[in-house]
Design a protein around this nucleic acid. Structure first.
Length: 909
RNA sequence: GCGCGCUUAGCUCAGUUGGUAGAGCAACUCAUUUACACUGAGAAGGUCGGGGGUUCAAGUCCCUCAGCGCGCACCA
C-alpha cells in the first residue's frame, strides 16, 4: 500500500492542510486564465477557452471580513472554479475600494479617540494617514479572502486609488462634462453638519419620528409646520389655484403680515403642487432648507435665503435666536410666537419623516449648495432600454422591479463630497468670475503667503513698513505652511523685503530649497506717522473706506498699495509663469491682491476677513484661460467624488478600459463580464451605476446576469450587529470546522435574494461531510491501489456510472442556471447517501470475493471513477478537502482545480 | 403613502417549467472491536397561514384576507 495513504488514518484536519493547498494553487499561476493548461481549455471542452469573468465587489478597505464577505467569496469562487473546470478562461478580478466617506468616518472615530479632529489637520497629512491605514487594512483583508479559498487573479488586482484608476475616473468625469451629462448647480443637498459634507440619497436614512405640528397665524392665513425654526425668512405663502377658500387672493398679490421678528411683506403664490386636503391648504416656504420649497421657488423665480448655517446653527436673520442650535431654538421660537398670539394650535402626535446621516445619525439639513451633478434622465433611459431589450437579467427575477423603479425615479446625482479621502474632482474655478473649468491641466502653482506672527502683531500694533521679529508662534506657523508648500516643488520665492517677510521667506526657502527674490513693491502699506500705534487708535484710518481711494493722514492709500503690488505680481506672472512660486507678503497687501483676483469692490475687500499669519492662498495656472472672463488664475476644486462614481465604473476599470485613450488588451476579451454577484441591498446603489457607466462608456452593459444574495443573519435569523453582540466572525468558524464546511453551510439552502440564518450546527454538519469524503477516499484508495482503471464494467457497474453521470448533469444544469444551493445539495446527497451508503457498502462483499476476478476488477474501476467524479463535482463547493484527496490518488499529475468537469454541459453551443 | 418578500416537519430552510411533499439539526428505536473519534439501518413527524378561483391535477398560477419582515418616500 502507498505510504501516501497513511494520512487517511486520522480524521481530516483542515487546519493543517488549507494554507499549504492555497499556496500551491496560487503558485501554480492558474488563477490567471492566461496560464491555464492547454488540455483544459482546448476545443471540445464546454468552454473551449472562451472567457468567463466575474468582477469581485471590492470590499471596503477599512475593516475586516464579516459573514457577508464569506458568502460572496464562496459564491463567486464556486462559479469561477466551475467555469474553469469546464474549460473557460475563468477570470475573477479582485479589488479593493477606498470607500470614501465610510473610511473617513471610521478614521475620524479613531482621531476622535486620540483627541484629534480632521478639521484642524493639513488635508494632505490627513490623506496620507488614511492612506496608510487603508493599505494596512487592505493587506489584512486580502489574506482573509485567500484563507476562504478565493481563486481570484491577484496579478490583476486593482485599488480604487491606484494612480491609473484615479486618472481614468477623472477622465470619465471630463468626458461626461463635455457630453453635457455633468453640470455644476446650486441645488438642495443632504448636508451632514457633523461630517461637514453633502451626502447622496443612499447615504441617508429616512426615519419616521413623532413630532409636533404647529399651526401659526400668518396674516389672514393659518399655516402648519413641523419646523418653526426655519420660518424666519418665509415671505411667500402658497396655495392651490383652485382652492375656493382662497379665491379672493391673487397670484403675486402682496400683503403685510406680522411674523416672528416683526412685520413682513408676504407674496401670494398659487401652485397646484399644494395638497388642498393637508392642514389648511396653505403653506409658507423656506426654499433654502426644503426640496419642495426649493423647486417651487425655482419655478416661480423667488428669493432664497439661508437660515441655518453649515454647523446647524441659526444665522443672524434669526436675530435673538442667532447662533442657537435648531433643536433648542424650536421651542423658544414657538414661545415667542405664542406671546405674540400667533400660535393657533399644536397637534401633538404628528408623524414626521426626517433624514439622518447613515453613519452618525445626525439630522440631515437640506441646504442649497454649489455641487457637481450627473444628469440622470438620459442615462437612466439607456439603462431602461437595455433592460427592455433583456441585455441583463436578475436572479432572483423580481429584483428587476426594484431596479427599474429606482431607474425610473432617479434624481440627478450629486457626486461631490467635501471630504479629502477620495478621488479629486478634476475641476478648477476661475478666481475672478468663479466659472468652473473641467479637466484643465495645471502648468504651475502660485501661493501667496502672509508672514508669520511678529511681536508687534502680538501686541496688536500697526507695523506698516516698520518692523519686528517673528515670535516663536510666528515661526511655527510658517514652518507648518512651509512643510505643506514643500510638497509642490517650489521653484522660486518672491518676497517683500521687510524683515518679517525676509524671515518668513528664509524658513520657506529652507523647507523647499527654492531661491528668494526680494521685491520692494510687495511691502506692506505705509502707515507713515501712525506706525507703532495700536489698531484701535487708528481704526478710523485703518478701516476707513476713504483710505482705499486716497492717502489719509499720511497713510498710503490702499489703491496705491494695490497698484504697486498688483503690477509687480502681474509682471512676475509673465516672467515666471512656468515656475511654482511662493509670494511672501503682508496682510494689507493681500487684501488688495484679493480685491483684484476676486474682482471685489473696495467695500467688499475691506469687509472681507483678513488673512491670518502664515495663511496662504493657492492659485493654479492652467493650460488655458477662463472661457468666461479670460482670467488666468484658478483655484482647484477641493471636493472629491462620491465613492459610487468610481465603483460604478469598476467592471470597466478592472478589465482595462480607458475612457480617454486606448483600452488594454484584456478589455475586448473580458468585457462585458458575465455575472455580477453582489448583495441584494446594492440593487439600487451600485448595480444601476455600473450599468449606466457600462452603457455610456462602452455601449454595453457590463454583465448579463446579476446574482443577488441576501443577508447572512445570526442563528435566529436576526440581523448581525455590533450593538446586539451577535456578530459571527467567519474566520472563527473556519478555524473550528474548516473552510469547506463554512462554504457549504453558506451555499446549501441559501436561495438567491433571501436571507440566511447561519447556524453553527449547520457548519458542524458539513465538517462531518468533509470527513465523510475523507473516509470514502480512504476506503476506495485502500481497496483499489492496484485497480486497472480501464477494466471493463459489469452491466450493473455501468448502470451505476450512468446514474452518476445523470446526477452530475443535473448538478451542472443547476450551476449553469445559477442555482448553487440546489447543486450543492444534490452533490452532497449523492456522495453521502448513494455513493457511501449504498455503493460502498455493497462493494464490501464484492471486493472480498476472490472467485470473481472480473467483478472485482469492474468494481474497483467503478469506485475509482466515482471517487474522481465526486471530487470534481464537489470541488467548486469544497475546494480544500477535495484537492487534498486528489493529490493522494496514485498517478495524479495535475491539480483538481484545473481538471476537467465530469459532466457535459446542457448549454447549447 | 408606494413597493417587495416571507408564512411548508419541533427548529432552520429547500422545493427549477403545475404531476401524490424534501434536507439538515433535534427527538425516537435498533445496530456498531466499523472506511467513518464526525457511523449505519429504521420508524415517527406536515389538511404547505385562512378563504375563494383556474385546471384532469395547485406548495407551485390568479384573486382575497391575516400575521411577520424589509425597502423606498420632497405631504407643509
Amino acid at each position: 500500500m502507498d505510504e501516501a495513504l497513511e494520512k487517511f488514518r486520522k480524521p481530516y484536519d483542515p487546519a493543517s492542510t488549507e494554507a499549504g493547498i492555497y499556496k500551491a494553487w496560487e503558485e501554480s499561476g492558474y488563477f490567471n486564465p492566461d496560464n491555464l493548461p492547454a488540455d483544459l481549455i482546448e476545443d471540445g471542452t464546454t468552454g473551449s477557452g472562451k472567457p468567463f469573468t466575474i468582477v469581485m465587489p471590492p470590499p471596503n478597505a477599512n475593516g475586516s471580513l464579516h459573514a457577508g464577505h464569506a458568502l460572496f467569496v464562496t459564491l463567486e469562487d464556486l462559479f469561477t472554479r466551475f467555469k474553469r473546470m469546464q474549460g473557460y478562461k475563468a477570470l475573477w478580478l479582485p479589488g479593493a475600494d477606498h470607500a470614501g466617506f465610510e473610511t473617513q468616518v471610521v478614521y475620524e472615530k479613531q482621531l476622535e479617540k486620540e483627541g484629534r479632529s480632521r478639521f484642524n489637520m493639513d488635508p494632505q497629512d490627513l490623506y496620507n494617514e488614511i492612506y496608510d491605514f487603508t493599505i494596512k487594512n487592505k493587506a489584512h483583508m486580502e489574506d482573509q479572502v485567500r484563507s476562504l479559498g478565493a481563486s481570484c487573479d491577484w496579478s490583476r488586482e486593482k485599488f480604487t486609488l491606484d494612480p491609473e484608476i484615479v486618472e481614468k475616473v477623472q477622465a470619465t468625469f471630463i468626458k461626461m462634462y463635455q457630453d453635457e451629462l455633468v453640470y455644476r448647480g446650486k441645488r438642495i443637498v443632504n448636508w451632514c453638519s457633523k461630517h461637514q459634507t453633502s451626502l447622496s440619497d443612499v447615504e441617508t436614512e429616512s426615519v419616521e419620528e413623532p413630532s409636533k405640528l404647529y399651526y401659526f397665524k400668518y396674516g389672514p392665513f393659518e399655516i402648519a409646520t413641523a419646523r418653526p425654526e426655519t420660518k424666519f425668512g418665509d415671505k411667500y405663502v402658497v396655495m392651490h389655484p383652485e382652492d375656493a377658500r382662497y379665491a379672493q387672493y391673487e397670484h403675486g398679490q402682496k400683503l403685510t403680515v406680522e411674523w416672528i421678528n416683526g412685520p413682513l411683506e408676504a407674496t401670494i403664490i398659487k401652485d397646484p403642487v399644494i395638497d388642498m386636503e393637508f392642514g389648511t391648504g396653505v403653506m409658507t416656504i423656506t426654499p433654502w432648507h426644503s426640496q419642495v420649497d426649493f423647486e417651487l421657488a425655482n419655478k416661480h423665480g423667488l428669493d432664497m435665503e439661508q437660515i441655518i448655517d453649515w454647523r446647524g446653527k441659526l444665522l443672524p436673520i434669526a436675530q435673538e435666536f442667532a447662533g442657537m442650535k435648531i433643536t433648542e431654538a424650536r421651542e423658544k421660537i414657538v414661545e415667542k410666537l405664542q406671546a405674540k398670539g400667533l400660535v393657533t394650535r399644536i397637534e401633538e402626535n404628528y408623524k414626521h419623516v426626517v433624514k439622518r446621516c447613515y453613519k452618525c445619525n445626525t439630522l440631515i439639513e437640506p441646504q442649497v449648495k454649489d455641487q457637481w451633478f450627473v444628469k440622470m434622465a438620459p442615462l437612466a433611459r439607456m439603462a431602461l432600454d437595455a433592460s427592455d431589450r433583456g441585455d441583463f437579467k436578475f436572479i432572483p427575477e423580481h429584483e428587476e422591479k426594484v431596479f427599474r423603479y429606482w431607474m425610473e425615479n432617479a434624481l440627478d446625482w450629486n457626486v461631490s463630497r467635501q471630504i479629502i479621502w477620495g478621488i479629486p474632482i478634476p475641476a478648477h474655478f476661475c478666481v475672478t468670475c468663479e466659472t468652473p473649468k473641467v479637466g484643465g491641466v495645471v502648468e504651475s502653482k502660485w501661493f501667496i503667503v502672509r508672514h508669520g506672527e511678529t511681536e508687534m502683531n502680538l501686541k496688536r500694533q500697526i507695523q506698516g513698513q516698520n518692523d519686528s521679529p517673528l515670535t516663536e508662534t510666528g515661526r511655527a506657523q510658517i514652518e507648518k505652511s512651509a512643510k505643506e508648500l514643500a510638497k509642490h516643488n517650489i521653484d522660486l520665492i518672491i518676497s517683500s523685503d521687510l524683515g518679517r517677510t525676509k524671515e518668513t521667506s528664509e524658513i520657506i526657502a529652507k523647507a523647499t530649497g527654492a531661491e528668494i527674490l526680494y521685491e520692494p513693491a510687495l511691502r506692506e502699506r505705509s502707515y507713515g506717522p501712525h506706525e507703532g500705534k495700536s489698531y484701535d487708535e487708528i481704526d478710523h484710518v485703518h478701516r476707513n473706506l476713504n483710505g482705499y481711494h486716497e492717502s489719509v493722514e499720511g497713510v498710503e492709500a490702499y489703491i496705491d498699495v494695490e497698484n504697486r503690488a498688483w503690477s509687480a505680481f502681474e509682471e512676475y506672472r509673465k516672467t515666471h509663469r512656468a515656475k511654482n512660486v511662493v509670494i511672501v507678503t503682508h496682510g494689507g497687501v493681500m487684501r488688495t491682491l484679493r480685491r483684484r483676483l476676486y474682482d471685489l469692490s473696495p467695500e467688499e475687500a475691506m469687509d472681507a476677513e483678513g488673512m491670518k499669519n502664515g495663511e496662504y492662498i493657492a492659485l493654479d495656472h492652467l493650460d488655458s484661460a477662463c472661457a468666461n472672463c479670460g482670467g488666468e488664475l484658478f483655484k482647484a476644486d477641493t471636493d472629491t467624488f462620491d465613492t459610487w462614481f468610481s465603483s460604478g465604473q469598476w467592471p470597466l476599470l478592472t478589465t482595462g478600459f480607458d475612457p480617454a485613450g486606448e483600452s488594454s488588451v484584456d478589455f475586448p476579451t473580458y468585457y462585458p463580464t458575465d455575472v455580477m454577484e453582489t448583495g441584494r441591498d446594492l440593487v439600487f446603489k451600485w448595480v444601476p451605476r455600473m450599468i449606466i457607466f457600462g452603457l455610456y462608456l462602452a455601449q454595453k452593459a457590463p454583465f448579463h446576469t446579476i446574482y443577488l444574495h441576501g443577508l447572512v443573519n445570526d442563528a435566529n435569523g436576526k440581523k448581525m450587529s455590533k450593538s446586539k453582540g451577535n456578530v459571527v466572525n467567519p474566520l472563527d468558524l473556519t478555524s473550528k470546522y474548516g473552510t469547506d464546511a463554512l462554504r457549504m453551510a453558506l451555499v446549501v439552502g441559501n436561495t438567491p435574494g433571501t436571507d440566511l440564518a447561519l447556524r453553527e450546527d449547520k457548519v458542524k454538519g458539513y465538517k462531518h461531510f468533509a470527513n465523510k469524503i475523507w473516509n470514502i477516499a480512504r476506503f476506495v484508495l485502500e481497496n483499489t491501489y492496484d485497480a486497472d482503471l480501464d477494466a471493463p464494467l459489469s452491466d450493473f457497474d455501468a448502470l451505476m456510472l450512468r446514474e452518476f453521470e445523470e446526477m452530475a448533469a443535473d448538478v451542472t444544469r443547476d450551476l449553469e442556471e445559477y442555482r448553487p444551493h440546489l447543486a450543492a445539495e444534490k452533490a452532497y446527497h449523492y456522495v453521502w447517501h448513494k455513493f457511501a451508503d449504498e455503493i460502498l457498502e455493497a462493494s464490501k462483499p464484492i471486493l472480498a470475493d476472490s472467485d470473481t476476478p472480473d467483478a472485482v476488477a469492474s468494481r474497483k474501476a467503478l469506485l475509482r471513477g466515482l471517487l474522481a467524479g465526486s471530487l470534481k463535482l464537489l470541488h467548486p463547493f469544497m475546494p480544500f478537502v477535495t484537492e487534498e484527496i486528489w493529490q493522494s490518488i496514485p498517478g495524479t499529475t495535475n491539480m483538481l482545480m484545473v481538471s476537467s468537469w465530469p459532466a457535459r454541459s446542457s448549454e447549447k453551443s
